[in-house]
């Protein structure tokens, strides 16, 4: 059922829902950016619609809500272990765009269906509801249409931003009653989505691991600094590493935590004996790109990359991921000839 609702009334709905749900949305951190007097947008708990920033895409994605960057798994003391309490006991209501909602499907594929379901992910993934915020226009670096993530039906609440009010489509019963009480009027609502983007990508049909031999990757050994920003902002990057941290005083107690990891950062492929599989940045780039637009799909049937474009915007070296995708065709020609 669809509704017109004022921002004020939406906040009432949020307030009521906040009894059993933490609300998360993109928030502007004033002067929280890298450079002096620049801001940053990233996900955080919010209490009202106005606290959320929709004028620009968030620099970092919603994934931090489900995958804390640094997550304590358990505490240990000599022969005893205590599981860490969950970061959140309430449910979560996450406001996001269509590309990010598609990213949830990727996270689930990794953590729920890729072998045994991950205990800690499942714990935070339970009781999560999604509010899809419609896109009236695409950002400069967005390429959701080509990645087929511009339309999304998997939402609990859909929302369009209109002059002075909001349109809501609610598929979630618990919330419907609240919208019934608080709406200005009822209406049919289709969540906004874009049908074209300025940035376009084309993944070649014949793409295969043969591309590893293409010369294009060498350029990235030169240009990429291996900082990992592209991974950390990516809503579908899910890698982590483990840390056993011992408390200083006696060294017998401590905590095990998992921490976000990046395939672009030094150390990711290090193995015992001092080996490392991908020392060159170009190799790391090839691995990342192929995982995002090739081999993940072999397994899951859909591409990992959702085309949000965050990695393009965050790269301090102006390496454009969408541009790399578009070079793959030429790369395949180089390694396979023109047939």
């Amino acid at each position: 059922m669809g509704y017109f609702i004022t921002v004020e009334k939406l906040d009432r709905v949020l307030k009521a829902l906040s009894e059993s749900y933490e609300i998360y949305g993109p928030k502007l951190f004033v002067r929280g950016g890298r450079f002096t007097d620049t801001d940053m947008i990233r996900y955080d708990k919010v209490a009202s619609w106005e606290e959320m920033e929709w004028s620009k895409r968030s620099d970092y994605s919603f994934k931090e809500v489900l995958l804390p960057l640094r997550q304590t798994l358990f505490y240990f003391t000599e022969d005893r272990v205590k599981e860490a309490d969950p970061e959140r006991t309430k449910g979560a209501l996450i406001f996001l765009r269509s590309c990010d909602l598609h990213a949830v499907k990727r996270l689930d594929a990794m953590y729920l269906r890729n072998g045994e379901a991950d205990y800690y992910y499942s714990r935070l993934r339970k009781k999560v509801r999604f509010v899809l915020v419609g896109c009236q226009s695409a950002g400069e670096s967005c390429f959701c249409v080509d990645m087929k993530t511009n339309v999304s039906e998997e939402y609990d609440i859909g929302l369009n931003i209109r002059e002075g009010k909001l349109e809501v489509d609610c598929k979630w019963e618990e919330a419907s009653a609240l919208f019934d009480q608080n709406c200005s009027s009822k209406t049919e609502v289709a969540v906004d989505h874009v049908t074209e983007t300025r940035t376009r990508v084309k993944i070649p049909e014949n793409l295969s691991s043969a591309i590893a031999k293409a010369s294009m990757w060498e350029e990235y050994s030169r240009r990429c600094i291996g900082c990992g920003r592209c991974n950390f902002v990516c809503p579908t990057c899910t890698c982590f590493t483990m840390q056993d941290m011992y408390f200083d005083e006696n060294g017998k107690t401590g905590q095990r935590r998992r921490v976000a990891a990046s395939c672009m950062v030094d150390g990711y492929t290090d193995v015992a004996g001092g080996g490392a599989y991908r020392r060159k940045k170009g190799d790391r780039m090839r691995f990342k790109v192929m995982h995002k637009v090739y081999d993940f799909k072999q397994r899951e049937g859909f591409h990992m990359c959702v085309g949000c474009g965050r990695c393009d915007d965050i790269c301090p070296e102006y390496i454009s991921f969408s541009h790399v995708i578009n070079r793959l065709e030429e790369g395949m020609k180089e390694v396979c000839g023109d047939e």
Binding site: F29, R31, G32, G33, R34, F35, T36, M40, R42, D59, Y60, L69, C227, G228, R229, F232, Q243, M245, Y246, D248, V259, A260, S262, V265
Partner: peptide
């Protein structure tokens, strides 16, 4: 220390290089 950077406040110049280097916005000004 314990996988986390520790800042020597006496030595620190406040130049902001750590903020620029951090890929995750852990350091801010």
């Amino acid at each position: 220390h314990n996988f986390t950077p520790v800042r020597n406040e006496q030595r620190c110049l406040g130049c902001g290089e750590c903020v620029l280097a951090c890929p995750n916005g852990a350091w801010t000004r």
